[in-house]
């Protein structure tokens, strides 16, 4: 199975400024995504997490600074080449009414196809592998809109896995799922990451999920990266108070090891948590 992922690519941002029209989301931001590791981005609503993923995946042109993929300016690379190496599952994905799981997963093969080669043996093998990895083989011929929320999200994951990129960016993949489906999906990502060495970056809301699954955590606040490192080093009561405005106790997770956060009560509402619109435009 490990042959499905090509050699690791490195992804980094060098002093980028991210903005939508006149609204600057983050300035002078630099980050190195560690190859082959599971990185989780956390931060309050509106802090620029999704925008960072969009910038890292070439969807948003940075105002200044450069995003490098394999040492090359991502905006100077062909879109289809980038897509072959870097996959993104955005929150805004739409399933056309009536599309089957198989047809959805199939569309993830676009970067590897051409005008003449529209369904090669490699395409077929990759789709079958992605469906098997997400345990969606049985449901392959079912319409996506008839599935449960957890199954539907797995169908989307199958699509992005069929892309066979060595880097996987996931924007809040577990939002709107019940806790059992959240855990099973995170287990899947962790397994793909450890089995295949696929560099994985996920935006998550649950800090304890981040603590448990991440090799590295990136903490964002007000468009800046305030901490980046292994959970034990990053998740301190001081940081949680500063970024999320919660008073918390950090204990050792008695079951899985690593830090576990127990919130005491809310101390204050930081500006970015106040009821504003979501961070995406």
């Amino acid at each position: 199975m490990s042959q499905s992922v090509p050699e690791p690519s490195s992804l980094r941002a060098d002093r980028i400024t991210m903005a939508y029209q006149d609204r600057i989301i983050g300035e002078d931001l630099s980050v190195d995504i560690a190859d082959g590791r599971f990185t989780v981005i956390i931060g309050p609503n509106g802090c620029g997490k999704s925008t960072l993923l969009r910038s890292l995946s070439r969807l948003l042109r940075t105002r200044s600074g450069t995003v490098y993929l394999d040492g090359k300016d991502i905006h100077r690379s062909r879109a289809q080449d980038v897509a072959g190496r870097l996959g993104l599952l955005p929150q805004t994905a739409i399933a056309p009414p009536g599309i089957t799981v198989f047809d959805l997963a199939r569309r993830g093969r676009y970067p590897h196809q051409s005008i003449l080669s529209r369904w090669s043996a490699q395409d077929e093998a990759a789709v079958h592998r992605a469906l098997a990895q997400t345990e969606m083989t049985e449901l392959a011929d079912r319409p996506v809109d008839e599935l449960s929320g957890g199954q539907r999200q797995r169908a989307w994951v199958a699509m992005v896995l069929a892309q066979e990129s060595s880097i996987l960016l996931l924007d809040e993949p577990t939002t709107f799922l019940d806790v059992a489906h959240q855990i099973s999906l995170l287990d899947l990502f962790a397994q793909l990451n450890s089995d295949e060495g696929r560099t994985t970056v996920a935006v998550l809301h649950d800090i304890n999920h981040a603590a448990r699954y991440a090799d590295d955590i990136i903490v964002m606040s007000h468009g800046r990266i305030v901490a980046h490192g292994p959970p034990v080093d990053v998740l301190t009561p001081e940081l949680l108070a500063e970024v999320f405005g919660v008073e918390a106790v950090v204990i050792d997770d008695p079951v899985n090891g690593g830090p576990h956060i127990i919130t005491r009560h809310r101390t204050r509402i930081p500006a970015s948590v106040a009821p504003t619109r979501e961070e995406a435009p």
Binding site: R54, S57, R58, L59, R78, A79, Q80, D81, V82, A83, G84, L86, G87, L88, L89, P90, T92, A93, I94, A95, P96, R107, G108, Y110, P111, Q113, I115, R118, Q163
Partner: peptide
């Protein structure tokens, strides 16, 4: 039909995903 149909099926998945799959 030959040149555009695949790109259009990606547009059906939403702007961001189309871009992420390499079709602006």
């Amino acid at each position: 039909i030959v040149l555009l149909s695949r790109r259009l099926t990606l547009l059906d998945l939403g702007e961001d995903l189309s871009g992420a799959l390499g079709a602006d």
